[in-house]
């Protein structure tokens, strides 16, 4: 089979797989963002035990391979009566993993806001919480867009790992197709192209978003 024939044959299943991949990515990035926000705020503003806990959590997750985390959620929990579907286990593992990374990006962004901003907020009678919500976070979130974009792309690519526990995403579908048509190179090449296109499309989307919310004084250099 030529490459184009392979493309025609595998289009259907691979597109199904792509859908799951994107679903997996979006769910995980959103849950991860929620977790990341909590961890980052805890690490920067929390009391000592909370700060310590958040730091330890982030370091442990960042220090261990994603694959092992996926195995823990999928194979490690059933003996304790927690049985997750492959998709659930994958979303959970990716969310926790991404949450730890996003927390670090957010923390960096929060700490890059000069301390005078909080002082000014307090001095006009805001509470600390008001200062965080209406002064610090709007600035930190703008700063975090570029690393966050990277994180999104990473996550998108890492979701390919989910095939190992049987999540029917792009990688799993490619394997399935290849195992039937024996066109390993062409099928995986096609899968690679799909990833490439999706990554480029998302990168463009994010840089568009970045330009939209840009305000003077918050320009980034590449």
């Amino acid at each position: 089979m030529t490459f184009w024939q392979v493309v025609q044959h595998s289009w259907g299943p691979l597109m199904d797989g792509l859908q799951v991949t994107i679903q997996l990515t979006l769910l995980s990035i959103v849950f991860g963002l929620a977790l990341g926000l909590i961890l980052a705020l805890g690490k920067v503003y929390g009391l000592k035990p909370i700060r310590w806990f958040c730091t330890a959590f982030i370091e442990i997750i960042r220090g261990t391979p994603l694959l092992v985390q996926i195995f823990i959620f999928y194979f490690g929990l059933p003996p304790y009566g927690i049985r997750l579907s492959p998709l659930e286990a994958a979303v959970l593992a990716f969310s926790v993993n991404s949450g730890a990374y996003q927390a670090e990006y957010l923390r960096g962004a929060i700490q890059s806001i000069p301390s005078g901003q909080m002082q000014a907020a307090l001095s006009m009678g805001m509470t600390r919480w008001q200062g965080i919500i209406s002064i610090i976070m709007p600035q930190a979130l703008r700063r975090v867009i570029p690393p966050w974009t990277n994180e999104f792309i990473y996550l998108l690519k890492y979701t390919s790992l989910a095939y190992i526990i049987g999540t029917q995403e792009l990688m799993a579908q490619a394997r399935f197709v290849a195992s039937r048509n024996y066109e390993y190179f062409h099928t995986y090449l096609f899968a690679a192209l799909i990833y490439l296109v999706v990554v480029l499309v998302f990168s463009e989307m994010f840089s568009w978003l970045e330009r939209r919310v840009k305000i003077p004084g918050f320009e980034y250099h590449k």
Partner: peptide, 10 residues
């Protein structure tokens, strides 16, 4: 009023 202004940059 601060020495470094501390205007809210956003």
């Amino acid at each position: 009023v601060f020495q470094d202004f501390s205007l809210f940059n956003h």
